[in-house]
Simulated assay, not measured.
Amino acid sequence: DREAVMNEFKQIHQQANKVAAVDVLHDFYVKWNKSYNHVIRNLKDIEPDLLVFYNYPKQIRASIYSANMIESFNNVIKRKAKPQAEFPTEQSLDTFIGIQA
């Protein structure tokens, strides 16, 4: 069920406004509550925080709920720091990461 659940959950973040997102989310609850009661209960507990990004302009919503930019940045740092087998001090590592950022 993982792929089906994830595809339906993604629909919540793709709605035009918060009202539509709440409707899709509640439909999601109804459909999956029987199979995944614990997960649905946890989602209901965090629902106000789950949809908070709808309070912001559409242009920046993706950067709020997506960690892709953060993950990409972390991968760049790891890749560039890897060839440097050892840094003589913690300060030199901090400086290197600062330069990369």
Rank of each mutant, 00 (worst) to 15 (best):
D1C: 08
T95M: 04
M69P: 07
N55A: 06
N37S: 13
I70Y: 04
I64A: 07
Q100G: 02
R61M: 04
V24L: 08
I46E: 07
Q15D: 09
M6N: 08
S66W: 04
D23Q: 12
A101K: 13
Y36D: 04
V19F: 15
K18A: 02
K44S: 12
K80R: 14
V39Y: 11
A81C: 15
V39N: 05
K80T: 05
S72E: 14
Y56E: 11
E3P: 00
S92V: 09
T89V: 13
Y29H: 05
K80W: 11
V19T: 14
V39C: 10
V30S: 12
N74L: 15
F28C: 01
K78D: 09
K82P: 02
A21S: 10
A67Q: 13
A21E: 03
K58D: 10
F96M: 01
D49N: 14
E86T: 13
I64S: 06
Q84R: 14
I99H: 12
Y65R: 01
N75M: 10
A21I: 04
A16E: 09
R41K: 15
N68W: 05
F9W: 01
M6Q: 10
K78F: 09
A62F: 09
N7M: 10
D49W: 07
V30I: 15
D45E: 13
I46M: 12
F73P: 06
V39S: 09
F73R: 12
W32N: 00
Q59M: 08
P88E: 09
R41E: 09
I64C: 08
E71L: 03
K31L: 08
A4C: 11
V22K: 04
I60W: 02
Y36Q: 03
Y29R: 04
I40Y: 02
W32M: 00
Q14P: 00
M69I: 15
R79P: 05
F73H: 15
V22R: 02
I97V: 14
A20T: 06
L25I: 03
I60C: 06
R41D: 12
E8T: 06
H38C: 11
S63F: 05
I99N: 06
S92T: 14
K58H: 11
N33I: 10
P57T: 06
N33D: 09
N55P: 02
I77F: 09
K18P: 00
I12N: 00
S35E: 10
I46H: 10
D45T: 11
L51C: 08
A21P: 00
F9N: 00
A67W: 05
L25D: 01
T95S: 06
K10C: 14
Y29K: 02
M69Y: 13
S35W: 08
L50H: 02
E71F: 02
E86K: 13
Q59F: 08
A20G: 07
R79A: 15
E8M: 08
A62C: 11
K44F: 06
A4Q: 13
I12E: 00
H38L: 13
K34C: 08
A4N: 12
I70F: 04
P88V: 04
N74S: 13
